[in-house]
Simulated scan of single mutants.
Amino acid sequence: MNKLDQLYRSVIMDHYKKPRNKGVIDDSNISIDMNNPTCGDRIHLSLQVEDNIVKDAKFDGEGCSISMSSASMMTQTIIGKTTEEAVELAHVFSEMMLGHEHDESLDLGDVEALSGVSQFPARIKCATLSWKAMEKGIKELES
């Protein structure tokens, strides 16, 4: 395993063992439950969106290290973003999971550590679960 793979693995495990933004927002205006029946991952995502800005994001649930660390990274990444930017990041993340290149000027932060998941097709649904929940929640809020 090369040093970059080791770094990415340590970032993923750090988010899994010490998840950021784990919990529930009591007064959220977006609340979505989703699961991945293939492997049993489940997530409850709550977002507080005001004036099209993600003011807060929290998740709860259970699942593998990939799904839970991805949820942790996703919540960190979207707080402070507009809903449009958050949805765009979800599209970029989905493309990254398919092995496609993304605009290097876009700072994905810790999310970049999940890029190797694209080599394991069975794990892509784990990584994208929270992102799909976020997209669904924003779509419902805007409709």
Rank of each mutant, 00 (worst) to 15 (best):
R9T: 10
I12G: 01
D14E: 15
D14F: 03
P19C: 02
G23K: 03
I25L: 14
S28H: 09
I30A: 10
S31W: 00
I32G: 01
N35H: 02
N36F: 02
P37F: 07
T38M: 15
C39G: 10
I43Q: 03
H44S: 08
H44F: 12
Q48D: 12
V49K: 08
E50S: 14
E50F: 13
D51F: 10
N52P: 03
I53C: 03
I53A: 06
V54I: 14
K58P: 03
F59C: 02
D60L: 08
G61S: 01
G63M: 08
G63V: 05
S65P: 02
I66N: 06
I66P: 03
M68L: 10
I78E: 11
I79A: 12
G80M: 12
E84N: 14
V87I: 15
E88Q: 15
L89T: 09
F93S: 00
E95D: 15
E104K: 14
S105P: 03
S105F: 02
L106M: 12
V111Y: 00
A113W: 00
A113C: 11
S115W: 04
F120D: 12
C126D: 06
A127E: 08
W131Y: 10
A133L: 04
E135P: 04
K136P: 00
G137V: 02
I138R: 05
E142I: 10
E142L: 15
E142G: 08
S143A: 13
S143T: 14
